[in-house]
């Protein structure tokens, strides 16, 4: 699905990623944890193709193609989805209209015919249930006036609608209360299957109680310094990041 080799990137002359290696196979859920400023969100942005981030080395192969050569929209059309940490507002554009445009662009790029309104509404209705979303939300402008929790739920709803091959969740749990966290996690779990992969970026182990990962990686100073399974996340929760810093400090 995704193969990251020695990925290096900088933003505004500051080197953030210092050689990331990560392989994600179909159906796997990888959690990426790490202290503030370790490069977690940068990794998400680089994968999605944000302009401000300059790749300075390494390669990324996504579904057999060179991801770094693709435009952001082509990455999305190929099945890469990023659930934003801070979703932006688009005033005057309804959620429904936005999603229909996005969905049909993706379908077009994959040689499918546009979905008609009736079918779209039907699917939207189903997916709204996944994240316990109110129908009125679809007629509101994209993220405008949404609470923090609503925005995150809306990201997962969009993911459910667009059915990506690989979803990157960038701190989707931040700012959520326990109920919202459960709803968001349920939405993600409902989308898990044999083919679809996830990269879940989080600061806290809490989310991983709900979305149980196959692998956990610790990112520190732009490198994955430790990988393990769910137990690693528990250990981090119990002991904090300092022991890792110390452990790594010896090696660096």
């Amino acid at each position: 699905m995704l193969e990251i080799k020695n990925l290096q990137a900088k933003v505004e002359e500051k080197q953030i990623l210092n050689g990331i290696n990560l392989t994600v196979n179909p159906g796997e859920v990888h959690a990426i944890m790490g202290p503030n400023g370790s490069g977690k969100s940068t990794l998400a942005s680089v994968l999605a193709g944000r302009d401000e981030y300059e790749v300075t080395g390494g390669e990324v192969v996504f579904r057999g193609e060179n991801l770094l050569e693709m435009s952001p929209e082509d990455r999305a059309r190929k099945g890469l989805f990023l659930a934003f940490q801070y979703p932006v507002e688009i005033p005057g554009v309804t959620n429904a209209n936005f999603l229909k445009t996005a969905l049909n662009e993706i379908r077009k790029a994959n040689g499918q015919t546009p979905m008609d309104s009736k079918e779209f509404l039907q699917i939207m209705k189903e997916k709204m249930k996944l994240v316990e979303m109110d129908k009125a939300m679809t007629q509101r402008s994209v993220n405008e006036g949404f609470s923090g929790g609503e925005k995150k739920r809306n990201e997962v709803f969009q993911m459910a609608m667009l059915e990506p091959m690989l979803a990157v969740l960038d701190e989707t749990d931040s700012g959520l209360d326990i109920d919202a966290l459960r709803i968001v996690a349920n939405g993600v779990n409902a989308l898990r299957n044999q083919e679809r992969s996830f990269i879940v970026i989080t600061h806290y182990q809490r989310l991983l109680d709900y979305i149980v990962p196959d692998f956990v990686h610790v990112l520190y100073k732009g490198r994955i310094v430790k990988s393990g399974t769910k137990e690693l996340a528990m250990e981090l929760e119990a002991k904090g990041y300092d022991w890792i810093k110390e452990e790594v400090g010896i090696h660096i």
């Binding site: 999605a48 929209e73 688009i90 999603l99 445009t101 662009e105 402008s141």
Partner: peptide, 20 residues
């Protein structure tokens, strides 16, 4: 960028945003 990430080209994104 948000629109791009959902598969919408920059040109269409501007159209969408401006129409909104």
């Amino acid at each position: 960028f948000y629109c791009n990430q959902r598969g919408i080209s920059t040109e269409d994104a501007v159209g969408l945003i401006v129409n909104g």
